[in-house]
Design a protein around this nucleic acid. Structure first.
Lengths: 330, 330
DNA sequence: CTGAAAGCGCTTACAG
DNA sequence: CTGAAAGCGCTTACAG
């Protein structure tokens, strides 16, 4: 592989001149400049990433930490990841994807070893063990998901409280007065999925204010169980005419359940991504999660902090994307 | 951040002694060894990845190139990726995930700049533009997906030809004599998805030999279209009593179509992952794709080649995983 | 406008 | 058993 020394020799200049000609960081005589560029082209020169990182303290790589749990149904993961990787590349960065169970240890490894210039955390829990590590790290970090303590990091998430209100308002507006909310399974909450109770508590509060009965329950995250759970639930609450689904597995399972029972009068509003709605051909109105957009927002802010000392000094942000209701396909 | 110089100073030894004590690559007096390890621990020392890569020509990072097409339904992508990242980590490697549309350019970038020690290509096309780049690269590469030309790389894939035969045999064994095969959409084939016609041609050949009528058609990859297509197809072929689905969107759509038509007599056999079967609660027998296992196999072989000069000299392999029929859930 | 040199933080022959 | 030194391939003050 050609080094910058080879390029310099071929162009008949010093290595520093070759470097400056390539980077454009100082003015170079037109002739030297041209010879360097031609030599680089001819030799197929690409700078060695490790050497450059060592010299500049910049790797042009972002870390992406994703949590996968075997007992969770995480259909939006690909969209989150694509939002991050595509945006990173647009901004000139590559992405190191880390999926190991010990997220805190992994985070320490990639930050301490200076493999990355910054880090995006996906699937952030209320009391996320990765956060202390991230705050202690020299690189900036951006989160997708709202933790209990947002200090020291930029945070991006859907406004789940507003989502809860929007969902209740929708069914109340359609005239329904007894509703069921199916949340994520309890183990998701126990694991720190604060968005579950943020949506639920806001929905309960709104329902109370509107004089609507709202039964909030935990759902399932696996497929055959989700069907059974919905069936039992509808049996137990025959008076309920509206269903709020903050649970992807339940949303995916519902069509077959209602079809089997002939419950065409049931009104439903979900909370999932547009991609998910299409994949499962769901006919319900829903609050869109927009995982790719959240990933993009996190990366843009992260790169701002990485590249500008001024931006690094700005106060940290918590950006909650407004919950918007998307109509079902007609 | 502490450097190895800091550790050496704190332990009262030279940098080379500190380095050797940490790596264990030569014998060190017990006292010096202990003091180095304690100093490293106390200072929270982690080697700088860029510096180490520069010195050793090893990054301990694997490149993972995934292709995403907006018009493709790629439900197994997460499983492929997890198979790769989890296995890589088990073997001591991190994973650089590259998703940009220009896969050949991206591959050249990460190999030329020496960001990675090896590369896994996902979603390999028959005449994949990334392959010439990979063959020219100094790093070894492993593919998930069988291209037209396997020279210079290790290849892992499901045996799609055998899958086609297994699927026909299954329905023939159940007594069916007129079948329909729904393949991926035509644009997947045009893009180089050779596995589509490998399965189809093998199925046609087997059907011919068994005296079974087999109608092979292209399906859809998007959700509402998949339902319509299946409906029209079943109308057009009223004599067909068995369905082979080499198309995830069609498999996901089929339950609602058959329910709407009361086609309980239809026998179905699919080709998808276990994860997919569960996610969509599919009641059909299927040939399992096992994307995580394919990813794992590719990484293991890749790391073997990276780490052993002897392995690097071995002939390249093409490993086709046998197609096995998985029974539907009872 | 340009070059010689130092330095980034490691590893590893080379000497002793 | 250990240390001084060279070298990996860059970038960037420092001099001229």
């Amino acid at each position: 592989m050609a080094t910058i020394g080879d390029v310099a020799a071929a162009a008949g200049v010093s290595r520093s001149t070759a470097s400056y000609a390539l980077s454009g960081k100082r003015s170079i005589s037109e002739g030297a400049r041209r010879r360097v560029l031609e030599a680089a082209e001819a030799l197929g020169y690409t700078p060695n990433a490790g050497a450059r990182a060592l010299a500049t303290s910049q790797t042009m790589v972002l870390g992406l930490l994703a949590r996968f749990h075997a007992d969770e149904f995480a259909p939006a993961m690909t969209q989150y990841i694509l939002g991050v990787t595509d945006t990173a590349r647009d901004l000139g960065y590559d992405t190191l994807l880390v999926t190991e169970p010990d997220g805190a240890g992994a985070l320490r490894r990639i930050t301490d070893s200076r493999m990355v210039d910054g880090v995006v955390l996906l699937n952030v829990a209320h009391d996320d063990p990765r956060l202390p590590v991230l705050r202690a790290a020299p690189q900036p970090g951006a989160l997708v998901g709202l933790p209990g303590d947002c200090s020291g990091v930029d945070v991006f998430d859907l406004d789940f409280e507003q989502a809860g209100r929007v969902m209740v308002d929708r069914l109340h507006g359609l005239g329904h007065r007894e509703l069921i909310l199916v949340s994520q399974p309890e183990h998701v909450v126990e694991r720190g999925g604060a968005y579950v109770w943020r949506l639920r508590d806001a929905a309960l509060e709104r329902a109370r204010r509107l004089g609507v009965r709202l039964h909030a329950v935990y759902g399932e995250s696996r497929r055959p169980a989700a069907e059974r759970m919905l069936g039992a639930l509808l049996d137990a609450r025959p008076g309920a005419t509206g269903l709020l689904l903050d649970n992807e597995a339940a949303a995916a399972a519902l069509p077959s359940v209602t079809r089997a029972r002939g419950l065409e009068g049931l009104s439903v509003v979900g909370r999932y991504s547009a991609e998910f709605a299409e994949t499962f051909a769901l006919p319900y109105a829903y609050v869109e999660l927009a995982p790719d957009r959240l990933g993009e927002m996190a990366v843009r802010q992260l790169v701002r902090r990485i590249e500008s000392a001024q931006a690094r000094a700005e106060p940290f942000v918590v950006r909650l994307v407004p919950a918007e209701l998307t109509s079902p396909p007609s």
